[in-house]
Design a protein around this nucleic acid. Structure first.
Length: 863
RNA sequence: GGGCUUGUGGUCUAGCCGGUCAUGACGUCGCCCUUACACGGCGAAGAUCCCCGGUUCGAAUCCGGGCAGGCCCA
């Protein structure tokens, strides 16, 4: 019998992976809108096109690809789209750096073009990495938010919410980055520690402490705590602001911390969020001392034109000269900074556009989504409950979706385009009709643009087929996979927008992945020099090894530390699998169309264990527990199949015995099922094996529903495996080679077992099974307790019971009495509560004796 | 300061809706090139399951309090 296949000895990762990547056709991954299969739509994250698909993305996409491939095998019509969230500051900054310009140095459209070019080339780089990782992306559902087809929808969604009253414009304090010259949302504010000085000075007779003396010109009130004895009776008095001379009232408010500084605080418009609160609560004046560029305004004369830093120094110097600066203290504080450029943010009052945030509605919708892991919902809940201001969606930048409105020069009316005219750029295009209010025909286009989250928060509408109005045909999506770092942004805004535009929750499930940390346990960052790129891993160990790391590195949802060891182990597992596969293929006959029945014990046992593995892996995949799935597969392949089954059954495969066909059948089935189980996680490897085995693509196959029950085979097979393992250990302990002949072995088991001679061949011994009793001296040496029985049955009496049992004579351990006496009380013996430990002594004959549970093995010294 | 989360052999990790000698990987040590695999096989050593207290016959697992780390935020 000649082997049906000649497989290369080594598995060439690079060659195999590249070969399949070029053989696979994109069309096979396309979502079919006409299909009658159940839909499974994935709201894939659109990454920011930095040009660098990093390892955190890789983990995220591994999860997505496992799901997409698994669901396809389960018969779903899967959509695994790929978006690109293009707009935003990082690209503008990069363009400014690259060309050594600022955004105002070139015409708006020119600047946009530069941004678009950079973005497209970055997307190209990232696509290449994604393909090299073997993701089964549906490239027919790719979207790019900066292109008209997509931002038309962003603009439509804006108009729809504007008309519904969910979007409004208003002058309101907002977080403002004076370097980027734009408003930003709270979600974009980071906090950084800073050491600063707390300055105490005389404010018209009252001592005030401030960290922001440059805001003195913007002072609109002085506040004290209503129960602060030091300032009793001050409320309503008017004080003169030093240096500037304008008058401000003294107010009382419980939010003032009497323990900070002098207990009196100056309220400026605006130093921080609390100032905004007080300003609203007490209906105070508005004094703008800092402009959009961070420069002091005329209000701050004589300091007008200075930067805020220069102004601070100048005011402190002037206070000192005037003798009103009393002292300074060093203060550690946290300051809000721009997420992009780290510049401390200012709070400026500006006309901006806002989206109304209805916390309760958002949370209701969020509750309709199934969260994995569950506790991630709490983060959403906490964030929603902490929202105090509406979402500021206007930005004073260029590379973003234009806000599609004009203002009538004559009457100021806000004029909207018709939806069919979208997309528009109001700074270029003109309204097609005169002003509906005054009939005027001269308009100013809105120059503000939209927050980029306004683009990405309708990704789910886009992928479910939204055309700009009504409910998308495939809405809601089945799953949203994303990281926990963007729960407060992407998840939150998406739910808000789905609720506002469609009226319900956007997805059935959300799967939240953790962050990838460096090998040192910290977040990867340039400054820590602990960054590992996907390319680096793939270059050395291949995509499948990286994917295994993603699956098995940590439980789904928890942060995962990158670890080269795991990648190396993953690649070794593939080598092992390859050798298993090579061995099996070497024994299978070619063209076996009608497989022989599986008759022999070891073969049936293998199928029982395979069946259990399928059940375990399926359950794990359903719950997105990829680590469990991979672990179960590894355990089965390496321990059960390679170390146990093949070691025991291989003699039969060489022996050309009539029982050989049974083993071949079992192995063919096993390899077939194993390839399918591996297909979602290591698609290249599974494909390579499956093609050799079946001549077809494993990715076209169904998920295995293999089940095989055989209690006897399970029991007897376990016993056989245990016995062989024990005898191997015996050989090892005797210093014998594992293939050294062993002579006469008798295995006494409680049930008759027919192993088709497997044990004998595996051990190189003349092994026989018997149900008889060895003629040996039997000694009871102790007792094993089963706490799972004793504990619940006897509770507090458990200890006394065990004492009493230990004191029983040996024959009673073998044949338990109905009751034992504990502290003078007869208590019943629960069935199965203990088993005697039996040792066998040699009686004259020269044999070694091994005992494993109720099995006794005797080994004769001569053959 | 708040929320969430984690703390298991040298390193990483499973278990954590309580039950006999705590899973696996890497590393270490010993033996073995047994006709798939030395990127292998067999075996060994190595754990106060962060600390303290509680519940329980019994706690890595549940509860309370600490300590330490991570993430998100104020």
């Amino acid at each position: 019998m000649s082997p049906s296949h000649q497989l290369p000895k080594n598995y060439d990762i690079e060659e195999v992976e590249r070969r399949w990547q070029s053989a696979w056709r994109d069309e096979d991954n396309y979502f079919d809108p006409a299909s009658s299969k159940p839909r499974f739509i994935i709201d894939t994250p659109p990454p920011y096109p930095t040009g660098n698909f990093h390892i955190g993305n890789a983990l995220n996409w591994c999860y997505i690809d496992f799901i997409a491939r698994y669901k396809r095998m389960r018969g779903y019509n899967v959509m695994f789209p790929q978006g690109w969230d293009c707009h935003g500051l990082p690209t503008e900054v990069k363009v400014e750096e690259t060309y050594g310009i600022t955004k105002n140095d070139v015409p708006r459209e020119k600047f946009r073009e530069m941004c678009r070019d950079l973005t497209l080339s970055n997307i190209e780089k990232m696509r290449a990495t994604m393909r090299r990782l073997g993701f089964s992306t549906d490239w027919s559902h790719e979207y790019i938010t900066m292109l008209p087809d997509y931002y038309r929808k962003t603009q439509a969604s804006f108009l729809q919410m504007l008309k519904a009253g969910d979007i409004y414009q208003s002058e309101h304090p907002v977080n403002f980055c004076t370097r980027c010259e734009t408003a930003i949302a709270f979600a974009e504010v980071n906090y950084a520690p800073r050491t600063t000085k707390l300055n105490y000075f005389d404010f018209d007779g009252i001592e005030i402490a401030t960290t922001r003396p440059e805001l003195l010109a913007a002072c609109v009130a002085v506040a004290v705590h209503p129960e602060d004895e030091r300032y009793r009776g001050m409320k309503g008095k008017r004080l003169t602001v030093p240096i500037f001379g304008h008058q401000v009232p003294v107010i009382e408010d419980v939010v003032v911390d009497p323990g900070f500084g002098s207990g009196a605080v100056m309220i400026c418009t605006f130093g921080d969020k609390t100032d905004v609160y007080w300003w609203k609560q007490h209906d105070l004046d508005l004094r703008k001392a800092i402009d959009r560029q961070g420069v002091m305004t005329a209000t701050a004369a004589p300091y007008a034109g200075m930067s805020s830093e220069a102004c601070r120094e100048a005011i402190l110097r002037d206070m000192e000269e005037a003798g009103i600066l009393k002292r300074q203290e060093v203060l550690e504080q946290r300051v809000g900074t721009c997420w992009r450029c780290k510049t401390p943010i200012e709070i400026l009052s500006e006309r901006q556009w806002f989206v109304r945030v209805h916390q309760d509605e958002i949370l209701d919708a969020a509750r309709k989504v199934s969260w994995t892991p569950e506790h991630m919902f709490t983060r959403m809940e906490n964030w929603a409950n902490s929202m105090e201001w509406d979402w500021c969606i206007s930005r004073q930048r260029i590379f973003a979706t234009p806000i599609p409105v004009w203002f009538c020069t004559a009457c100021g009316e806000t004029v909207l385009p018709a939806e069919e005219d979208l997309p528009i750029d109001p700074t270029v295009d003109k309204p097609k009709t005169p002003c509906p209010r005054c009939g005027g025909s001269d308009f100013t286009g809105e120059t503000d643009v939209l927050d980029t989250w306004m683009d990405s928060s309708i990704s789910v509408l886009h992928v479910t087929g939204w055309d700009g109005t009504g409910k998308p045909p495939f809405f809601p999506a089945q799953i949203r996979p994303q990281g926990h770092d963007i729960i407060r942004t992407w998840a939150f805004y998406t739910i808000l927008r789905a609720k506002a535009l469609v009226g319900s929750h956007p997805w059935d499930q959300i799967l939240v992945n953790g962050m990838v940390l460096g090998e040192d346990g910290f977040k990867m960052s340039k400054s820590r020099n602990n960054i590992i790129s996907p390319e680096e891993i793939v270059g050395q160990y291949g995509a499948d090894a990286l994917r295994q790391w993603g699956a098995g590195g940590a439980a789904t949802g928890s942060d995962i530390m990158f670890n080269w060891n795991d990648v190396v182990a993953a690649s070794r597992f593939q080598t092992k699998l390859w050798n298993i596969f090579r061995f099996v293929m070497g024994h299978l006959d070619s063209g076996t169309e009608s497989p022989a029945p599986v008759t022999e014990l070891t073969d049936r046992w293998l199928l029982v264990r395979l069946s259990e593995t399928v059940a375990e892996v399926t359950a794990a995949m359903e719950g997105y527990q990829f680590d469990r799935a991979l672990r179960a597969i590894r355990e089965f392949a390496w321990n059960t199949l390679a170390d146990d089954y093949i070691e025991i059954a291989k003699g039969r495969l060489y022996a050309d015995d009539s029982s050989r066909e049974s083993a071949c059948s079992a192995l063919r089935t096993t390899m077939d099922v194993l390839c399918r189980l591996l297909a979602p996680i290591i698609p290249h490897f599974a494909e390579e094996c499956y093609h050799n085995l079946a001549g077809r693509s494993v990715h076209e196959e169904a998920w295995p529903d293999f089940s095989y029950a055989d209690d006897e085979a399970r029991r007897h097979g376990d016993l056989l495996v245990k016995t062989v393992a024990e005898l191997r250990r015996y050989k090892h302990d005797k210093g014998m080679a594992l293939n050294a002949p062993l002579g006469h072995v008798m295995i006494y088991a409680p049930e008759p077992i027919d192993d088709a001679g497997d044990a004998g061949r595996a051990l190189a011994a003349d092994a026989r099974w018997s149900t008889g009793t060895p003629r040996l001296e039997e000694v009871t040496s102790g007792v094993d307790f089963n706490m799972a029985v004793i504990g619940p049955a006897l509770r507090k009496q458990a200890r006394g019971f065990m004492e009493a049992v230990r004191a029983l004579p040996p024959e009673q351990l073998k044949n338990p009495p109905a009751t034992v006496t504990v502290a003078g009380e007869d208590i019943p013996v629960p069935p199965g509560s203990f088993t005697p430990k039996v040792a066998y002594r040699v009686a004259g004959e020269e044999v070694d004796v091994l005992t494993l549970g109720d099995v006794v093995v005797t080994i004769g010294h001569s053959s």
